Amino acid sequence: MRHILLLLVCLLYAGLTPSVADNGPEPIRSGEIWPDNNGVHINAHGGGILYHKGRYYWYGENKCDTTSSAMVGIMCYSSDNLTDWKNEGVALPVTDDEGSDIVRGCVMERPKVIYNGRNRTFVMWFHLELKGKGYSAARAACAVSKSPTGPFRYVGSLRPNAGRLPFDMTDAQKAVLDTLRAENYAEWWTPQWYDAIEKGLFVKRDLPGGQMSRDMQLFVDDDGKAYHIYSSEDNLTLHIAELSDDYLSHTGRYVRLAPAGHNEAPAIFKKDGVYWLITSGCTGWAPNKARMFSAKSIWGPWTSHPSPCRGPKEEITFGGQGTYVLKIHGREDAFIFMADIWRPEKPSDARYIWLPIQFRDGVPFIEWMDSWTLDFFDRR
Rank of each mutant, 00 (worst) to 15 (best):
M1C: 08
V9M: 02
L12M: 12
G24E: 06
E26H: 13
N37A: 12
H41D: 15
H41E: 15
G47E: 14
L50F: 10
H52G: 12
R55H: 10
K63D: 11
T66D: 03
M75V: 00
M75H: 04
T83E: 13
T83C: 14
D84W: 02
N87F: 06
P93A: 07
P93Y: 03
I102R: 03
R104M: 07
C106N: 09
E109K: 13
E109W: 14
K112H: 12
N116F: 10
R118Q: 15
H127R: 05
L128K: 00
R159N: 10
R164K: 10
R164S: 10
D168M: 14
A182C: 03
E183G: 11
Y185C: 11
A186S: 05
W189N: 15
T190D: 07
P191V: 05
P191T: 08
Y194I: 00
Y194K: 12
E198Q: 08
Q211T: 03
D215S: 03
M216P: 01
Q217C: 10
D222I: 04
Y227R: 14
S232K: 03
E233S: 05
H239N: 09
H239C: 05
S244T: 15
S244R: 12
V255W: 03
A260I: 01
H262Q: 14
A265N: 10
P266M: 03
P266S: 08
A267I: 09
I268F: 01
F269I: 12
G281F: 07
N288Y: 06
N288S: 12
H305K: 02
S307E: 03
E314I: 04
Q321A: 12
K327Y: 09
R331Y: 15
E332K: 14
D340Q: 01
K346C: 11
A350Y: 11
D361A: 01
D361I: 00
G362F: 14
I366P: 04
W368C: 12
M369T: 08
F377A: 02
R380K: 09
